[in-house]
């Protein structure tokens, strides 16, 4: 991809990802956030966080399936945007929903699995965001960094679980997200299975070569 193409892609991602926040700010300015604004804002931010998290998780499968390399250049940006929305979502819960009622919030975190997993997902994203800079990648070394950043899968799974658990059982939306996540993970699994098979194949071929020598 050309440099111009890459820049256009990044600008596009920024625009799409910030649109939900812009819509909320516009709704706030025009007094148009439904009659239960706190609930509405919480849900919009949570749903956007989950979408961006799944978008982040979709980049590697997209590369695997298509062979393109550009999806990987968006990984950090999308991941940080997902984290940004998750933090806003959490902040709204603390400030607007519960207004610093630590006792009730502590109770919720301890007693309600859907809150517990939501918070765990957010906590898992913190070290990932903190080590997202090029400097940190160098400092940790590619291998350790990659291993650490596998936590994003766990965060994705917990994010989906959070939604499934909090929604009424009769709603399908949470299952749609969970299905997408499953498909994305399946692509990776299939790919790493393929990689293992290829390596085993190579080993066998090597042995044969060595054997024929003797």
């Amino acid at each position: 991809m050309t440099t111009r193409g890459r820049v256009a892609l990044k600008v596009g991602v920024w625009a799409v990802a910030l649109a939900p926040l812009a819509a909320l700010l516009y709704g706030f300015a025009t007094d148009d956030l439904t009659v239960n604004p706190i609930e509405y804002v919480t849900r919009q931010l949570g749903e956007t966080a989950l979408r961006l998290l799944l978008a982040t998780l979709a980049l590697t499968p997209l590369r695997i399936v298509s062979g393109w390399s550009w999806p990987i250049t968006l990984r950090r940006l999308l991941g940080l945007l997902a984290f940004f929305y998750a933090v806003l979502h959490f902040a709204v819960w603390i400030v607007l929903d519960h207004f610093f009622d630590w006792h009730t919030m502590g109770d919720d975190i301890a007693k309600r699995p859907w809150i517990t997993v939501g918070l765990t997902a957010l906590v898992l994203l913190v070290p990932l965001a903190a080590t997202s800079t090029t400097g940190m990648i160098k400092r940790l070394g590619g291998r350790a960094w990659r291993r650490l950043h596998r936590l994003v899968y766990v965060a994705g799974i917990l994010g989906c679980l959070h939604y499934i658990w909090l929604a009424k059982k009769v709603l399908i939306q949470p299952w749609v997200y969970a299905t997408i996540l499953m498909l994305l993970l399946a692509v990776r699994l299939w790919n790493s299975g393929r990689g293992l098979a290829r390596r085993a194949e190579q080993k066998k071929a090597q042995k044969i070569v060595i054997g024929s020598r003797g």
């Binding site: 009659v35 239960n36 706190i38 609930e39 607007l96 519960h98 207004f99 009622d101 009730t104 109770d107 919720d108 007693k111 309600r112 859907w114 658990w165 909090l166």
Partner: peptide
């Protein structure tokens, strides 16, 4: 008596900010 997914101890009156 809590709902399994939330406390019933407080409520948001539509049109008000604090629970």
């Amino acid at each position: 008596v809590d709902h399994p997914r939330w406390s019933q101890g407080t409520e948001r009156r539509i049109g008000e900010f604090r629970r």
